[in-house]
Write a protein that binds this DNA or RNA. Structure first.
Lengths: 213, 213, 213, 213
DNA sequence: TATGAATGAGCATTCATTCAT
DNA sequence: TATGAATGAATGCTCATTCAT
């Protein structure tokens, strides 16, 4: 008789609708302030469907995180050419990272802010992803360092440096939200100069030490 | 007959007790999962006292953030000797920062994770504090750079670099939580090497550029 | 297997159940001492339904007032035949009023006692209704008076007299609660005699004045 | 050393302070919305003193009602000259009543609205007072009626008429709050005309009856 | 598949009331 | 006498979650 508001859609499509809505809502209000009601409203899907397809709120949030984390990792690794030199790999990776963040602010918010601030499995998951990123960077550093010869102190420091680099990138991505006139490419370039050259000095034995302490 | 748990204490003391408990509870469970009941239990104070002295849950959280932010800033600025050279100032600042984080993990959790992940006034407040930190570092960079002569690109980049440095420090502080065998002093030293030397190169015109892109 | 207490009912029905229960509870305990828990219990409906359908406690009370006020007004105006003489209209109106109060004591309690004693919008609403009643009566008085000719003093007094009549009726309704052996018809008859004849005298210029004062 | 805010005052004075404050606060916010904190603040007396002198909130409210009711009754009976004719007694009584209400709006609010709307002992007390007033009026009516000769119907009606008169007066007092340009004397005069003359007709056998019903 | 109807359980907040001083 | 400090107990309200259709 009357038009049905939404047609019967295949499960796959419904799930995507729901996840899109959830990412949007979670990024806007944070995990706890987000209500399943709003998600269902934004998704145009009734709540029971959400539970049927994606489980509890926690499950839903987890699904969001996994999807966005995967997207981010794919974007970054997809931007890297393994046949290039380490510095160029890093360069492309950073470029891909900033490009992704620029184009998917909501995804980034969910990953960087919401997920980490929740204790337990969520932050674990994101921190694991960050760990993979750090390991990736560390591998590049080690590869370079080993080529040139790596002294004791530098060896032990590479992982920390990788962590610092990843942290820098994350922090710059945040900072970027308030300075949108800069291009992502510029950000990547700054970061390369800062980190790579400092790292190079380190490897070459040029070390900063406190004058007296 | 039996010992009374706590006697009538002056308001000031109670407020400190409550804030201590609140920081603990907020850092453990996050803002939303923290319950006023638990705060009151941990503080050894009934809920009405909390409301009488510190106001609503939101107010209480705000008070925590302000107190911890102030403590952190005081710790960092108190660690700096303004008569020293910029690099030494940075060195001491980083040292003080890592020392504070090492000694007040809960404070750091509340500030870095919980506060930022809540939208609105809380994250604003913390982000403002981070902004002050970035400005501080930026001033040091600019001072150094100007002495040596600063080319165009480097000038525009100092603020971003400062943001990156602050981000690195934050990220390292997080990383540290999972690698507690490292000393804060070592962390600071790595960071100095990474950042300061890279910055030095930058200032001296030694620039990294992509080979082809 | 066993009988289910209530099945899924359409919203409309539930709302009526809830309002019925609320009027009952509010009339028994007054606005403040009434608890939403009791309302939900009496209605046989869980609290979230109440909030979903009728809003906050304040909203719920307002809805009760509006419904009962409407019912009362409908009962009274429905009892009036506009084609009759003013005195007969008043007579029928009073009759309908007392009939309603006799049959809906709880409604009357809520309207007359609870609503008025709450400051703000509630009493405003009820006082507005009383105002309409007074205006109604006033119109009747004026109509009669004008026919017969109305001296200055009487003119200015009609509104006050109407207020007095309405007040009398309300007061008698209260008094009735403690003297239930009287019929509402008798009450109406007494009131007609008291008021209408006094009014008639007034209109005809037969005035009571203090002998010396 | 420093000035004490309030001196040690005799119990009597303190009690008056507290009652004055309580009447004010109760009339402003109603029984339930009034907080003991506000009473203590307005009275300039700490809460424990209130409890020591006047007992619980309920007790305090009861004390207010009793004091104000007594005042009102005293004002009214004090205004009456028993040696005068019944109509003049009523006239003076009404005058005293309106004078009191005009000069003590808060007292009247507490008595008329707050007290009655609370179930139980409070409204009982006030209703008892109203009962005394009704009885007083009734006695006047009966005295008059008996003198002139009183038919059956009228006899049974006098109490109801007295109730109606008292109700009119109360209602007019309320109405007055919104029409403060009228003098209390005028109100009393209107009421006398309305009621006394209608009553006179009644007594004289001039009865209003519905034409057909 | 899809949803309106329904709820258990929890949480922030308030207030009358009372100690300890 | 007088009070700042302290609390037990209650209540409004919300939200994730699940039936019955």
């Amino acid at each position: 008789m009357h038009v049905q508001r939404v047609k019967r859609l295949p499960r796959e499509v419904r799930e995507r609708q729901i996840l899109d809505a959830a990412v949007q809502v979670f990024s806007r209000h944070g995990y706890h302030n987000a209500s399943m009601d709003e998600v269902s409203e934004v998704a145009g899907v009734s709540k029971p469907m959400i539970y049927a397809y994606l489980g509890s709120k926690e499950d839903l949030f987890g699904a969001c995180i996994r999807r966005e984390a995967t997207r981010l990792l794919e974007a970054v690794t997809g931007g890297i050419r393994v046949e290039l030199a380490p510095d160029m790999q890093l360069w492309h990776g950073l470029g891909a990272f900033f490009r992704f963040v620029g184009e998917h602010r909501e995804s980034w918010q969910v990953l960087h802010r919401q997920a980490i601030s929740q204790g337990g499995p969520f932050s674990d998951e994101v921190l694991a992803m960050r760990g993979r990123a750090i390991a990736l960077v560390d591998a590049l550093l080690v590869r370079t360092a080993t080529k040139r010869g790596l002294d004791e102190q530098a060896t032990r420091a590479t992982e920390a440096l990788a962590a610092a680099l990843v942290g820098s990138a994350e922090s710059l991505a945040d900072w970027w939200l308030d300075h949108p006139d800069i291009t992502g490419r510029t950000l990547a370039s700054w970061l390369m100069n800062l980190v790579w050259m400092g790292f190079g000095d380190l490897v070459e034995g040029s070390v900063w030490t406190p004058t007296n302490d």
